[in-house]
Amino acid sequence: MTDNLEQLIKEAVEKALEGDMDAINNIEDRVTRSKAKAALVKAKREAAKEKSEASSDEGSDPPPDSKKIKTSNENIAEKLIQQFPDDINKDLSSETNIQIQPKNWLDIAKYLRDDPACLFDSLQCITGVDLGEESDLEVRYNLHSMTHLHAIEIRISCPRNNCKVPSIESIWRIGDWFERETYDMYGIEFEGHSDLTRILLPEDWEGWPLRKDYDVQETYHGIIVPKVKEGWE
């Protein structure tokens, strides 16, 4: 009986390796079917292993050094440094992001959208970051190009008590709500925005909730917001 089953599984796996999965799928017994599938996975893995071993034996050339391939962030950073030499923080930029000064951000954004080598037509996200109570706030833009299928991250930091960044609402339309949300949570002001008001919280809310030094208000329209909850529990 067991020999029969093993034979059945073996045959089914052989057929499946040739591309006929029905041989396995048509096995009626569930346990046998799953055994056959497991055997198939094993067989495929072994085949792949053999193949890779064979190929590594054949080609003695070392594989191309993957570290030398530049990320899209580095490529775009190089372009930006040529175009806007004073606005890019070369030291802080890395392979995952490009750090820039807020001053000419609007022109840089326009360049990023329109330059044929960049063509970042999609602004995917704007995030605010609070880097700690003693340090700055930061705005991060994730850009993606539908044409070139590359993506970069732009980071702009600004001082905590006077955080002003040019608005890119006029360049990417979605920036409108993204910027309002970032303003709502961090109090980062986007200069030139057409309607910079709170988007999620009520208009009369006090403070910027996602900042590290945020202090929860004690009452809201007479409703108590308990800070110390011992007496409540």
């Binding site: 919280l201 308990p226 909850k229």
Partner: peptide
Amino acid sequence: GYHVLKGVDLV
């Protein structure tokens, strides 16, 4: 939850 009412019986 800085934004959540701690019980609707407050209102």
